[in-house]
Design a protein around this nucleic acid. Structure first.
Length: 417
RNA sequence: CGGGAUAUAGUGUAACGGUAGCACGAGUCCUUUGGGAGGAUUUAGUCUCGGUUCAAGUCCGAGUAUCCCGACCA
């Protein structure tokens, strides 16, 4: 991709109002654009990161045996009346009437719709267990959108639902889902702790929140730095003291964190009210036992920025970076330098390296370096008069100081290892 | 939804109640080209409504928006 043709523009100044680092950096580097509080557009760079995250999630969900579907964002009131949540979710749900007076709402979550769909697919114990997920836009009339992209009014959620004959089957899947979640976050460059939490609205049983330690967070968890055991602060209050209940030798520290995902055992809470049942082997109708598992895509993206940045800009983990390499043509674009930069660009592309080529004629070298640091692509390749005379290129990692002057072939080799 | 703060050009900032200025950006021309280049020139602004006043960006009231702290969520 040529930077001269990409639809974005970095900003020299920090946005005045924003305090959250993810908002400052993502807005300044123009990954995103704010339309209103908690509602953002994703420009090419942000879009690419978002897509990378989604691909990782899809891979791990598919590996779990879940199939991807897509449910609507617009729901009729009737679906929500079955569980009485039209009323109880009223505060946070965008609800309105269409032109013919029908009451409709934008989905803040999809348990009800899911159960309705489930009814058409699942009839018998032979149809179970099953798992489906979607990556879809949620709408929540948050009383307070905040922290940039961390809490939005419109955001994308991966929501996975599992269906079982009994609690044992659910528990088994739940553990697999927990592992898959850990994989997702690890691949996205985050250390997420599966903390025990109360089930909240959904279930009396415990649930797990996936917490990432960062000051930008709005949650707290109790963390043992020795063994990595983590616990929700509420649960921690009820149970143990400050000693780690797992390794017995560590101490639980209270740390600020962001909840990037959570998993719930729903049981029959949503299946019973809508009559979502299956026939067991004796031919009796039984409510389907459900689990639900969520990840906030943009929150995850924002959290990555909160964790991976320095004073110059973002430092993307390679797996979610908008591009793998950032090629900068530095100095006057003489025919010779043009030749070397184009050659480098094409060679990288041919080798399958995702590369952003800063071929801008009018940007100064300083501007290109600053932008490259701000955008945070993992590998920086520089071609200039200096490298031209030796027929080489410079290779530098965003998170390291060392600059290597090497041949184009050697450069490609280190990028395609 | 309670509490606090802020609102001036695309962005960031000035202006005693009395001529809305500066920097960046953007446009044109020239010179530049290894860490946000220099000169010339052009461009664009007081959140909305009401009030006080000879006069309001500035004072008062209401509204709206944004950010922050709480309560709630991925």
């Amino acid at each position: 991709m040529r930077e001269s043709q990409l639809f974005f523009k970095t900003q020299k100044d920090f946005p005045k109002d924003e305090v959250a680092i993810n908002a400052q950096l993502l807005l300044r580097a123009n990954f995103i654009e704010k339309l209103m509080a908690g509602v953002y557009s994703y420009l090419p760079l942000g879009y690419r990161v978002r897509e990378k995250i989604i691909r990782i999630i899809e891979e791990e969900m598919n590996a779990l045996g879940a199939a991807e579907i897509l449910m609507p964002a617009l729901h009729p009131r009737s679906v929500w009346d079955a569980t009485k949540r039209w009323e109880t979710m009223g505060k946070i749900m965008y609800q309105f009437k269409d032109h013919s007076g029908r009451e409709v709402g934008l989905g803040p979550t999809h348990e009800e719709v899911m159960a309705v769909i489930g009814k058409t697919v699942i009839d018998s114990y032979a149809d179970l267990p099953r798992a489906v997920y979607q990556i879809q836009t949620k709408y929540r009339d948050e009383p307070r959108a905040k922290s940039g992209v961390l809490r939005g009014r419109e955001f994308t959620m991966k929501d996975l639902y599992s269906f079982h004959t009994d609690e044992a089957s659910l528990a088994e899947f739940y553990e697999e889902a927990k592992k898959a979640y850990t994989k997702v976050f690890t691949r996205a460059g985050l250390k997420a702790y599966a903390t025990e939490a109360s089930g909240g609205d959904f279930t009396k049983e415990y649930s797990h929140e996936f917490m990432v330690e960062t000051n930008a967070g709005e949650d707290e968890m109790m963390l043992c730095r020795l063994c990595g055991f983590a616990q929700n602060t509420e649960i921690s209050k009820l149970k143990s003291g400050t000693q780690c209940p797992k390794c017995q030798s560590g101490v639980l520290d209270k740390v600020t964190s962001v909840e990037v995902g959570n998993i719930f055992k729903l049981g029959t809470k949503f299946s019973e009210p809508v009559g979502f049942t299956y026939k067991n082997q004796e031919g009796r109708s039984m409510p389907v036992v459900m689990g639900s598992y969520g990840i906030g895509i943009e929150r995850l993206l924002g959290t990555i920025v909160e964790v991976h940045h320095d004073d110059k800009g973002i430092v993307w983990p390679e797996a979610v970076a908008p591009f793998k390499a950032h090629l900068l043509r530095i100095g006057e674009a003489t025919p010779e330098l043009q030749r070397l930069s184009e050659e480098t660009y094409h060679a990288l592309q041919k080798s399958g390296v995702e590369v952003l080529f800063d071929d801008r004629e009018r940007a100064s070298s300083g501007e290109k370096f600053f932008d490259a640091d701000l955008i945070g692509i993992p590998w920086r390749i520089v071609v200039s008069e200096k490298t031209l005379v030796r027929e080489k290129v410079e290779l530098k990692r965003r998170n390291e100081q060392e600059v290597k002057v090497i041949t184009l072939n050697a450069c490609i080799k280190s990028l395609t290892l």
